[in-house]
Write a protein that binds this DNA or RNA. Structure first.
Lengths: 203, 203
DNA sequence: CGTGGCATGTAAACGGTTACATGATTTA
DNA sequence: TAAATCATGTAACCGTTTACATGCCACG
């Protein structure tokens, strides 16, 4: 039975906490795995229908007591849980990353000299923001979920993200320094063709 | 004029070296930017047609001298080069990464204890391989392209990839250690409920 | 000569995003 | 009751992969 990954994300989210609606699942995805996975309504709602038709999830009664909005909630069935576990045990597929930043950097020679520097600065901004967000999530996790059996795995996803982001930040600093040097070198070269060469700058 | 990114990759590749065919462009992509970008024939050939129709590239005569296979080559026009430069100067869009490894790790509590460890080991394998490939490319670049004006930018793409991969490798080691400890802890806990607690193992 | 791989291309299917439509619920 | 927003859903579109079709060239 071929199934797309959206279905597994839904099963996973319901395995962590049952009785969620499509809307809630979408929000949970964005706020937990959002920095390495995304889902849109256009995928979630059809997938919910399909999963329910196959008996992997069941619609649960919206408790009429408080009646918060009208929303159809779902919970995992035994078959759904088994399906999730089967998928988890399968080797992960690492989908080829698409990194437009690196693409532009690769072709940057064709552009004006400032372009690469501007892109790297934009990347640094993004990565600094990401570090902040990751640290925020980590703090919240430690306070609110440190006793959860999910905690160690959730922390691991965070620390990998943080480690790679920090590595990228360090790279960015050195890359900016390099490009600045190269610019200075180019200026020197231009001066050198006009007058005497000053090979090393001195105070 | 809306244009997909495949077109810019083609323009970029032709800006580095003109007179390439679709097949050659595909191969060049795979062997240079392959670890952060991919293109398939199904995109390249239609894009070539479209670019030619818009005058951004021109089909060049396959030199009848050696007649190496039949293949239609293309070269950049001035308009094509200008188009590429315009795109390069635009802020890059960072497309949300999709990382199935992290997704499975996030849900790993639902699976058997060995599953997360197996996935991390698989990741380590992949990353060790990636480091090897990146180092190979770097060596080749230093030998064959160190005088090219593209060289500094190409090196930067390599060093970012290497830095992030190395960070992931380090993370993997510590993650494996952590999970091994957790397993040992779980065993201890189970023993503790059966007999006296041995809080710290001693020779 | 014919087989295998090179090179070009196309059609179909897929996964995913976006935009839009709609009702229901809060709030002002 | 009007406006804003919540929640669900659908249709269309886009980019991409995959599978397939085909002809050409080199080599045995």
């Amino acid at each position: 039975m071929k199934r797309n990954r959206t279905s597994y994300v839904i099963l996973g989210m319901l395995s962590i906490e049952p009785n969620r609606s499509g809307y809630e699942i979408r929000k949970a995805v964005a706020s937990s795995v959002g920095y390495f996975w995304g889902e849109s309504y256009g995928q979630i709602y059809p997938a919910l229908k399909q999963l329910a038709a196959e008996g992997l999830i069941v619609p649960t009664l919206t408790q009429a007591g408080t009646a918060k909005k009208r929303r159809q909630q779902y919970a995992l069935t035994d078959a759904g849980r088994a399906c999730l576990r089967g998928w988890l045990a399968l080797p992960f597929q690492n989908d080829p990353p698409r990194n437009e930043f690196l693409l532009k950097l690769f072709f940057a020679r064709e552009a004006d000299p400032g372009v690469a520097i501007a892109h790297i600065r934009q990347l640094q901004e993004l990565n600094r923001g990401a570090i902040g967000i990751l640290e925020g999530i980590e703090k919240m996790l430690r306070q609110q979920a440190s006793q959860s059996p999910h905690f160690p795995y959730w922390m691991l996803t965070l620390t990998l993200g943080a480690a790679m982001t920090r590595a990228a930040l360090e790279w960015g600093e050195s890359a900016l320094a390099q490009l600045a040097l190269a610019d200075a070198g180019a200026i020197e070269d231009r001066q050198a063709t006009k007058s005497d060469p000053p090979p090393t700058p001195e105070g």
